[in-house]
Amino acid sequence: MSDKVHVTLTVNGRSVDADVEPRVHLADFLRHDLGLTGTHVGCEQGACGNCTVISDGVALKSCLTLAVQADGSEIETVESLATGDQLSPLQQAFKDAHALQCGYCTPGFLMTITALERRGGALSREELRGELAGVICRCTGYETIIEAAEDHLAEVAARG
């Protein structure tokens, strides 16, 4: 068994200290060690994007990042979005557009769109589809997800 490595990182604004095995990926670390089970593991090979989180402002697949790599990073998961029972505007947009059915992929979409929202800039529907192509949904057929993302990004842009 290889030696554990000490890591210090920030997760959803909270400072975290832990000793992790190098082979543990970030998604498992978030779920098993920190109990943040909002990040969903679908394929563990980078195909489904359901485990997408934001690391230092960048959307990445947490199953393809080792937990030790997150040492010193600022990680944001889906748990960072809502305030208590109050949905975030993006989550509300998903609810309004019926952009989820089973909901398994939803955290991946929410975090991918959150990173996109911060990047700013106007996107065509086609470009938006491209930006979201890294998350796979098996229920909705995507139309309502694209709609929710479009509605939300338009609202953010209108607010300035």
């Binding site: 190098p22 082979r23 990926h25 563990e44 090979q45 980078g46 199953c63 393809l64 990042t65 080792l66 030790v68 790599q69």
Partner: peptide, 26 residues
């Protein structure tokens, strides 16, 4: 060598590769 890890980590997860060490150049 671990750079972006987008090919290496899937191979590690699937145990298609079992290196003794991963050298993270990031």
């Amino acid at each position: 060598v671990l750079a972006g890890g987008q090919s290496l980590v899937p191979m590690l997860n699937m145990r298609l590769m079992r290196p003794t060490a991963v050298v993270d150049v990031n």
